[in-house]
Nucleic acid binder design. Structure first.
Lengths: 252, 252
DNA sequence: CGCGCCGTTGAGCCCGTTCAAAAAGTGTGG
DNA sequence: CCACACTTTTTGAACGGGCTCAACGGCGCG
């Protein structure tokens, strides 16, 4: 039969982790990395839409997204949903101030097929105690997230539909390109219009109309889960996207 | 003459700091606190509206708000403003991931007469090196901010005008009450309707109408810079305010 | 082929905006 | 204490961006 085509579910080893440079463990040396393996409780495969954790659940674990895409979101009592942040491979999630007795303030779920490395709370604390570099790194990552959240706030509060959608596309475009440099201005883009709508605070219908407008202006091509932006500068203009501020700073 | 009525501008000492339990330095013992004094470069008085730092400026200092109120905001190229976060005494501000070479991604300014303690970047780094507790504390504070930012995102993205305004009032009400417990459900409230509008992503005009509605429902009294909420539970209902999630977790 | 998910389009409405103006504070100096 | 300037709040009228409701089209998959 040769190699079966089914998905490879072998568990990756930390010392050969291909995304380490992006992740929490970036500052660790090759020798130190081996210890991480012991603290990882689990390597978990996720189907699209599968929950990682849910709003209101106890806060027992933290995660590194190893492959695929995911997102954080909050639900209002009546079901309205706000997507708080998209996660790409290497992103760290699940850390909260009140790990000891708190409950999750938001939910997390896989957007595509994905996989995560699971680190229980105690394991994380032990690693921080041993490797103070990790604490610094976490502060760094958290501050990055803050910066992205701030841009997102400005979008939702003060940008119109066209700007919001353009901004979201550019943010994701840049974050992906940062990880996989390429030259054709095309990146994978697994968000449905429903998902985009809940991220930018619009209706899926209005997102659709806005995308049409951008498409008809020749600013982007969005087809079969791939996003092509012929001229990122032109789109940035349209979005009121401040490249300077966003640029390398907000990226890994 | 007795005591002159003019403002007291004597520089407070760190070891007698009345807001320490709220601030970054909370975990330090009385002995350790003395060292902090050496690292504080300056104690600065601010007039209402005065800038603490500006978007685009180099990132050289961090601050603890000692007294008064302040806020962080971002300006879009065309002048639209989004307020990102309100700061109360004890809050830490000015920390960024890219302290070394980055520029500020947002501006900060005093809302009322206020005062701040200034810690240069190098001083902060030295303190972190000496007192690893401070790193943990900063992670904690940053994670708190995240939680508040997430609620704010949900407001801007998915709540209507009434809910947004009610939510803002409740957030501030609770944050102030956390610091100054009282029993009359009244707190100081120095925000103008303009400021509120830029925080919740509405027009000052519509904020005014929304406040009227809330006032006429008997849910609040807002007069001469003081906010009275007769029945916080009732207002929370109106706001879709999830007390459980917000509660003690996001505070301090 | 049929079912489900996702994207697309149209028509009408409503929440929040824009534009305009007046009223009510608030602080300052005479 | 009043006069004046300035900021903040309040109200009205009309517009419009984005929403709601409804239906149809396309594509992947069992």
């Amino acid at each position: 039969m040769g190699q079966p085509k089914k998905r490879d579910s072998r568990v990756p080893r930390c010392d050969a982790c291909p995304i380490r440079r992006l992740a929490l463990f970036q500052p660790l040396s090759m020798g130190e990395i081996e210890a991480v393996q012991k603290y990882r409780a689990e390597y978990r495969l996720l189907a699209p839409g599968e929950a990682i954790f849910r709003q209101g659940a106890p806060t027992l674990e933290t995660y590194t997204l190893f492959s695929g895409w995911a997102f954080l979101y909050q639900n209002l009592p009546d079901g309205r949903r706000q997507i708080l942040r998209f996660l790409l491979p290497g992103d760290f999630l699940g850390f909260q101030a009140d790990m000891e007795e708190g409950v999750r303030g938001h939910s997390a779920q896989a957007l595509t097929e994905a996989s995560i490395c699971v680190f229980p709370r105690e394991a994380l604390l032990k690693m921080f105690k041993r490797q103070s570099k990790l604490g610094v790194r976490l502060i760094w990552l958290t501050a990055q997230d803050q910066a992205i959240a701030h841009e997102h706030l400005a979008s939702l509060g003060r940008r119109n539909a066209l700007e919001r959608v353009a901004y979201l596309l550019l943010e994701i475009f840049h974050r992906v390109r940062m990880r996989q440099p390429g030259d054709d201005n095309t990146v994978p883009f697994p968000l449905t219009q429903d998902v985009m709508a809940d991220a930018v605070g619009l209706t899926n219908i209005h997102v659709n109309r806005t995308l049409r407008q951008l498409r008809e202006s020749g600013l982007l091509v969005l087809k079969s889960r791939r996003l092509h932006i012929p001229d990122p500068g032109a789109l940035a203009e349209q979005a009121g996207f401040n490249v300077e501020l966003f640029g390398p700073r907000a990226m890994i």
